[in-house]
Nucleic acid binder design. Structure first.
Length: 417
RNA sequence: GUGGAUAUAGUUCAGGUGGCAAGAACGCCAGAUUGUGGCUCUGGAGGUCGUGGGUUCAAGUCCCACUAUCCACCCCA
């Protein structure tokens, strides 16, 4: 146990971390182009935020949160989701009083007590984007296009964008009634889970995977046929924007997000290559959330993207992320006097912008050269008594093996050319 | 929470019906004449065979329990 990471957590070792850095940098860069600024919120929140934000009936709240009392007896919950904390900060700091919309992004760990499997962890990482204050469908479309742009820039083009509208409290209530009446007729054909869903949240019967349930729901009334004018117009608008950008998408009335706060737009981006947990990105509109959390009545849209799942998808599609380059220069030394000289020379060159490595393992000269090769150094020099005396070194190009004699003072210039 | 599979060197894996002083490949380290890498060759280090019980003259190999990992359900990113 002592030397084992807790269940559902993963170390990111140097052999992987460069991939994380690559995709995270790309996320930040894209957000910059879209004018979304980073927000960082705490790793934990007051439990009530998630109760209120995510919804008390959701699985996340009922059985997946890491909740504990701190030493003063406050109920604390590790960040279970990204949107509510962003909303909380938006309200707490009065950002709603500034010019709108407020466009935010974050890259953060998320904690949920789940049973680990492919693409599902207890600590996972999300890239999230939120836009507060904009009710226009162009905001929904912009948020979706951030996700799509990221995927495209990574070379991923076989993921599926699925969209739906889950309506507003008014039309959803209406639809719920219709759906419930329909399901009531077929209650005996549904699986046991769905009999419970029928009571708690009938919408979720729609995405049940059990064959018999699918047969029933195939005939079920669709929410998209029951939207109120406002919701239907919004959905049509969104599709117009998506069409204009040339995105392929599927309207999937079965999409039901597991968080209570969604209204109107709900969408998912799905990979078929990473096992049963294929939702790489999920999001939607939440026009009631900010008010629900104690803020002004303001709309919002956003998404969360699972970084682990994104990386899995890249791997499954054979997309290679560029490996970090080796050092510009490896300086090998012979003898203690040369080591001291080498050490300070390396430091100076690094300060001036070269990536320089030296040996710390008392290696022989030959072993230092092997090491330089292994590190993928571009150039190498050897410094011993002769070089200390003459102030000259042979700069070796490790790719070609070619050596040129130059002054030690000329190393920086020679490599930079 | 339910179900299935698996657990042998740093890594990926071999080890029919119980008899190993436990192997391979890759990786790691060191050498192949004197101050220079990549290829090749030689040698070396490294394993409580997940943990704890049990059966047996004898268990990595059979039985039980526990733990962990993987996969699926559920749910979600």
């Amino acid at each position: 146990m002592l030397t084992k990471a807790p269940r559902g957590t993963k170390d990111v070792l140097p052999s992987e971390s460069y991939k994380w850095q690559y995709v995270e940098n790309l996320m930040r860069e894209i957000c910059e182009f879209y004018g979304y600024k980073e927000i960082r919120t705490p790793g934990f929140e007051h439990t009530e935020l998630f109760l209120r934000g995510v919804g008390e009936s959701t699985d996340i709240v009922r059985k997946e949160m890491y909740t504990f009392n701190d030493r003063s007896g406050r109920s604390i919950t590790l960040k279970a989701e990204g949107t509510s904390p962003a909303v909380r900060a938006f309200i707490e700091h009065g950002l709603y009083a500034e010019t709108q919309p407020t466009k935010l992004y974050y890259i953060t760990p998320v904690y949920r007590y789940e049973k680990p499997q492919a693409g599902r962890l207890r600590e996972h990482h999300q890239f999230g984007v939120e836009i507060f204050g904009a009710k226009s469908a162009s905001a929904d479309a912009e948020v979706i296009s951030i996700a799509m742009t990221l995927l495209k820039k990574l070379g991923l083009n076989n993921l599926e964008l699925r969209i739906n509208s889950v309506g507003c409290p008014v039309c959803r209530k209406n639809y719920n009634k219709v759906l419930k009446e329909f399901l009531k007729e077929h209650l005996d054909e549904l699986c046991d889970d769905c009999k419970v869903r029928y009571e708690v949240n009938p919408l979720r019967v729609l995405d049940c995977k059990v064959e018999s349930c699918r047969r029933v729901t195939g005939e079920a009334p669709l929410i998209t046929d029951y939207l109120c004018d406002d919701c239907r117009n919004h959905f049509e608008e969104l599709k117009k924007y998506l069409d204009a950008m040339g995105y392929d998408y599927i309207v999937d009335p079965r999409i039901v997000r597991g968080l209570d706060y969604y209204t109107k737009t709900a969408f998912e981006i799905i990979s078929k290559d990473i096992g049963a947990q294929g939702t790489v990105c999920g999001g939607g509109r939440y026009d009631g959330l900010i008010e629900e959390c104690g803020g002004p009545s303001m709309p919002g849209v956003g998404f969360g993207m699972g970084i682990e799942r994104l990386l899995l998808t890249l791997e499954q599609n054979g997309i290679e992320i560029p490996k970090p380059e080796g050092p510009d220069l490896f300086i090998a030394y012979i003898g203690d006097e040369a080591k001291l000289f080498t050490f300070t020379l390396a430091n100076k060159l690094r300060f001036n912008g070269l990536k320089v490595e030296i040996d710390h393992m008392e290696r022989s000269l030959k072993a230092q050269m092997k090491y330089a090769n292994k590190l993928n150094a571009k150039f190498a020099v050897v410094i011993g008594e002769e070089e200390l005396e003459s102030k000259k070194v042979k700069l070796k190009n490790m790719a070609t093996g070619e050596e040129t004699e130059i002054l030690i003072d000329e190393i920086e210039k020679a490599i930079k050319n």
